[in-house]
Design a protein around this nucleic acid. Structure first.
Lengths: 137, 137
DNA sequence: AATATAGTTTATAATAATTCTAAAGAAGAA
DNA sequence: TTCTTCTTTAGAATTATTATAAACTATATT
C-alpha cells in the first residue's frame, strides 16, 4: 500500500502535476496486491465503486494515456472493440479468455522466451507479445 | 489463379451461396500470389481499384466475417481502431509496423515455436499469437 | 499573499469503425 | 413458375475514443 505522498513524488518526478484526479486514479490502479487488467470502462466502474467518486471520462482517458506514456501502464494487443491496459509493465505475456473477455498473466516460466531470428531493414523492434487465446471447454 | 468455377464450388461446399458479391470478393482476396493483410477499408479500396465496382460496406463486413467463420480468412490481434485480416490462415506470426500500420508475415523459421507449459482449468487454447511490433529507426 | 502561467479537467461535440434494421433482390428447390 | 430462404443494401444506431474550448488549479514569480 503506497502512501499518497509517494504517488505525489512519483507524479512530480515524471513531470505530471499531482492533481486530485490523478491521485485518485493512482489509488485505484496501483494500491492493490495483484496486477490489474482493465478497460477504460472497468476502471471507471472501480472509481465509483471503490472511491464512490466520479472522474470525467475524458480525464480517465487522458490519465491512462499519460501513465502509459510514462511507463506506469502497458497497453495489451487484442483485437477487441475496447483497449486493454495492464498495471504490470514488465515484459510478459497473456491469456485472453474469449468467454469472459478477461486477460490473465502468463508467468515467465510458463512460456518459453521467444527468439526472433530476423529483423526488418530500417525498423527497430519495440515489443514482442504473445497472446494465447482461450475459451470455455 | 483460381477460376470462377472453383470459387463457386468452394462457396457452395461450405454452405455459402455463390453470389456475385462473394465471387468478386474471392477474386480480390484470393487471386493473388502473396498473402494479403488488410483492413475493411483496404479491401473496399481494392474492390473499386481492381474491379472498378462497388459492393456495399455492409456486404463487405458480412462476407469477411462469413469467410473468417469458414476458415478462409484469419483475424489478427492488434490493438488498433480497425480490425486486420489475413488471407494466410496457417498458424504463423506477424510484424506490425507502427510507422506504416502494416502487417508483415514472420516466417516459421524466423521465430521459435512457442511452447506453453501451462493451461487454465475449464478452458481450452484456441490460438497462440506472436506479434512483434516495429517502428522506424 | 497576490498574480501570472502553463498544465488540467470537464461537459459536450465530433469522429470513425462496426453492427443493426428492415425492405428489396437473388438463389435454389419444388 | 412459385415459394422459401438467404443475401444485399442504404441508412440508422451503437460504441469507443478523441477533439474542443471554457473553467479550473497547481506552481512559480513577484
Amino acid at each position: 500500500m503506497l502512501k499518497n505522498n509517494e504517488f505525489i513524488d512519483k507524479l512530480r518526478s515524471s513531470g505530471l502535476r499531482p492533481t486530485k484526479q490523478r491521485l485518485k486514479l493512482c489509488k485505484v490502479l496501483f494500491n492493490r496486491s495483484t496486477t490489474f487488467h482493465f478497460t477504460i470502462n472497468d476502471l471507471k466502474k472501480q472509481i465509483s465503486e471503490k472511491l464512490n467518486e466520479k472522474i470525467s471520462l475524458a480525464t480517465i482517458y487522458n490519465t491512462v494515456h499519460a501513465f502509459k506514456k510514462k511507463g506506469y501502464l502497458k497497453e495489451i494487443s487484442i483485437n477487441s472493440d475496447k483497449s486493454y491496459f495492464d498495471t504490470n509493465t514488465k515484459i510478459h505475456h497473456h491469456f485472453f479468455d474469449n468467454s469472459t473477455k478477461e486477460l490473465i498473466d502468463i508467468n515467465d516460466n510458463q512460456v518459453e522466451k521467444i527468439k526472433i531470428n530476423t529483423s526488418l531493414p530500417g525498423k527497430k523492434i519495440t515489443s514482442v507479445e504473445v497472446l494465447v487465446k482461450v475459451e470455455n471447454k
